[in-house]
Amino acid sequence: MATRNSGDVVGGDTEAAVGAPPGSPASKRPARDRIFETARELFYQHGIRAVGVETIAAEAEATKMTLYRNFPSKDELVAEVLREQEREYWAWWEEVTACCCADPRAQLEAIFDAFETKACNKDVLGCPLSNAAIELHEEGHPAQVVSVNYKKELYRRLVDLTRRAGAKDDDLADALMLLMEGASGARVTLGAGGPVRAVARSARALIKYHLDGC
């Protein structure tokens, strides 16, 4: 069962899907899960601003009342979705870097290789956390806080890796952060066949210049 911020116990998690046949997969899934997964997909496909709670509830075969029983507001629902996407991103990061035998330079190169592969996937519509940061720029918005903290952690990790790879300052981390940010934007505006195809090669050039001096 779900609890609201006030601590009141509610029954939204066990509500059957509206209109779902008894015993069907949709009728057995908790309402909170249906709402969360539907919102995640709609936000990514259409943008956060473009999707209202009525649409989310209808697509999830739930009611608005059930949605608000499980999530205090749309803003909190967006923030929950972004937190889950951030957890998945860091799990991806750890998986990619684990293959490099603790070699920080190789880890940096592997991250950008994997980033390019992911970005060139035709089904990818950019980084959801970056997209959210652009859409939701109001200071203090719950989802904006998640996006900003994600960016800070990303930069911190790049600084850590570049320093351990031999960088004497943060110039390489700055350049790689800007490259990743620019590539994310280029993927959204220019597609998988655009400049994002060169992100791994560009990262290697930056790494070589800053670490080898050439």
Results as ranks from 00 to 15, higher is better:
F43T: 10
L176F: 05
D174A: 05
D103I: 04
L176T: 01
P30L: 09
Y209V: 09
F115M: 05
E109C: 11
H141C: 10
G126Y: 04
P195T: 13
A119P: 07
K74C: 12
R4I: 00
I48S: 09
G7R: 03
P128E: 13
E153W: 00
A17R: 03
E61Y: 02
V188W: 05
F43V: 10
T55N: 08
D8K: 09
G52Y: 13
A102V: 10
G11P: 03
M177T: 10
A17C: 07
A102K: 12
R4H: 05
M180C: 11
V18W: 01
A58K: 13
V159A: 00
V188M: 11
S24W: 12
A57W: 02
Y209S: 15
S130R: 04
C99V: 14
Y209K: 14
K122D: 15
A106C: 14
I134E: 10
V148N: 02
A91Q: 13
N131F: 03
A79Y: 00
D123N: 15
A173S: 10
P104Q: 11
Y209D: 14
T97F: 05
V96L: 08
V196G: 07
L154D: 00
P142M: 09
R197G: 07
A132L: 11
P128H: 14
Q45F: 10
P22V: 08
G47D: 14
E54N: 15
R197N: 12
Y44G: 14
E116S: 11
G11R: 06
E61G: 01
G19F: 02
S6A: 14
V146P: 01
F71K: 02
L125P: 05
A119Q: 14
E86H: 00
G191M: 09
M177C: 08
Y209I: 09
Y44R: 14
N70Y: 02
H210T: 04
T189Y: 13
F115R: 01
T162P: 07
V199N: 07
E84W: 04
P30Y: 09
D160L: 00
V146A: 04
E41W: 09
A167W: 01
R201L: 12
V53C: 15
